[in-house]
Simulated assay, not measured.
Amino acid sequence: MLRVAIVGASGYIGGELLRLLHGHPRVTVVAATSDRLAGRRVDGPHPNLRGLTDLCFIGHDALEGVDADVLFLAAPHRETMERMAGFLELAGTVIDLSGDFRLRDPEIYASYYGVPHRAPQLIPEFTTGLPEWHRDRLVTSDRIAVPGCMATAGILAVRPMADAGLIEGTVHVDARTGSSGSGVSGGPAAAHAERSGALRVFAPSRHRHEAEIAQATRHTVRMSATGVEAVRGVQVLCRATLAPGVGERDVRSAFRKAYADEPFVRVIAQRQGLYRLPEPKILTGSNFCDVGFAVSADDGTVLLIGALDNLVKGGAGGAVQCLNVRFGWPERTGLEFPGLHPN
């Protein structure tokens, strides 16, 4: 059994890692850190784990005494890069879910995160944790940076078209996300009285996931993000201009070619039914990302759509999928849950 530890396990992503890894047949969780909750059981902040584990949180300093093969990092942005050199000494494989090692250019990182990158020399060591586009490198990589939730949906929706040369110019991304995307400490804006019934544009421009989508697609991206009333779920609507002569058949062919053999990406672009295009509601708890499209022949544009559960495929599930790739296991291992309907 592979021994894994989770740093920052008291938050929503940490809880999803605990849930998924508890059910994974090839790993055992040997440590979960939280300075604030050290000594308390993990099923306190994560009550869905009651009766499944007796694991208790340990402080971050106690991690040095833990024998772990893999370290999952669910620590905050900006903080993780300060501690990364130490983390890399604690386990052979490190899978980071913060934003600190996703962007390849330290100057772009600084412009989006508002601080200089503190460990730029380590950035080249990390492989983007998106198996659909980086599987060949992930099989040998021990430094993995999992993309952000809206970035994952946006990249999976746009990149087949970008790589095939079927779109041109700027891609405009309208992203919607549920309240869990703000984390456990979401602040006053995440309070039920303020969030209920709201459609709050919290990032009218320059959301940090914009830079990740641009990096992956090599297109200029302009992104806005809106908080919706759902707890879980991300949906991105990406509008782009089609290259001359490109039609719906070309678009469908590009998606089918890109994702024909992918275990967790489904192409959803149907002409009828309640769920004709990707809808995050039916993906709750699953590691699927559904992608689809709608071509507007009148103005030569295409709407590229991606949907996922932000805590699973957009976070902890994506990290576990990378773990499976890295160690040569079937990618669905521990990630078989198909989602709920109705939900």
Rank of each mutant, 00 (worst) to 15 (best):
V29T: 07
V30Y: 06
A32W: 01
S34Y: 04
D35L: 12
R36D: 09
L37R: 11
A38S: 14
A38N: 03
G39F: 12
G39L: 08
G39H: 05
R41W: 10
R41I: 08
V42I: 14
V42C: 09
V42N: 00
V42E: 00
G44A: 13
G44Q: 09
H46P: 07
H46Q: 07
H46C: 10
L49V: 07
R50V: 12
L52M: 13
D54H: 10
L55R: 04
L55V: 10
L55C: 03
L55N: 05
C56H: 12
I58R: 00
H60A: 14
D61S: 15
A62G: 06
A62L: 11
E64W: 08
E64D: 15
E64H: 13
G65D: 14
V66W: 02
V66G: 01
D67K: 12
D67E: 15
D67R: 15
A68E: 11
L71Y: 07
F72K: 06
F72M: 12
L73T: 09
P76M: 09
P76H: 05
P76N: 09
R78K: 13
R78I: 15
R78L: 15
T80D: 06
T80C: 11
T80H: 02
M81E: 14
M81F: 00
R83Y: 10
A85Y: 01
A85D: 11
G86N: 06
F87G: 00
F87L: 01
F87P: 04
E89T: 15
E89L: 14
A91Y: 08
A91D: 04
G92S: 13
G92W: 11
T93D: 05
T93N: 04
T93L: 15
D96L: 14
D96P: 10
L97W: 05
S98F: 11
S98R: 03
F101W: 07
F101H: 03
L103W: 01
R104Q: 14
R104H: 13
D105K: 09
P106F: 12
E107G: 07
E107K: 03
E107V: 13
I108F: 00
Y109S: 05
A110L: 01
S111M: 06
V115S: 04
V115W: 02
P116L: 04
P116F: 08
P116N: 05
H117M: 12
H117F: 14
R118Y: 03
A119Q: 07
A119W: 02
Q121I: 02
P124D: 07
P124C: 05
E125P: 03
F126D: 06
T128S: 12
E132T: 11
W133F: 15
H134N: 14
H134I: 02
R137A: 15
R137N: 12
L138F: 02
V139S: 08
S141F: 03
D142N: 15
D142P: 04
I144F: 07
P147G: 08
G148D: 07
G148Y: 04
G148E: 04
M150Y: 14
T152W: 00
T152F: 04
T152L: 13
I155K: 01
L156I: 13
A157Q: 02
R159I: 06
M161S: 02
A162T: 06
A162Q: 00
G165V: 08
L166Q: 04
I167K: 02
I167Q: 01
E168Y: 00
G169Q: 03
G169W: 05
T170S: 04
T170D: 06
T170P: 02
V171A: 11
V171M: 05
V171K: 01
V171C: 06
V171Y: 00
V173Q: 03
D174K: 08
D174E: 13
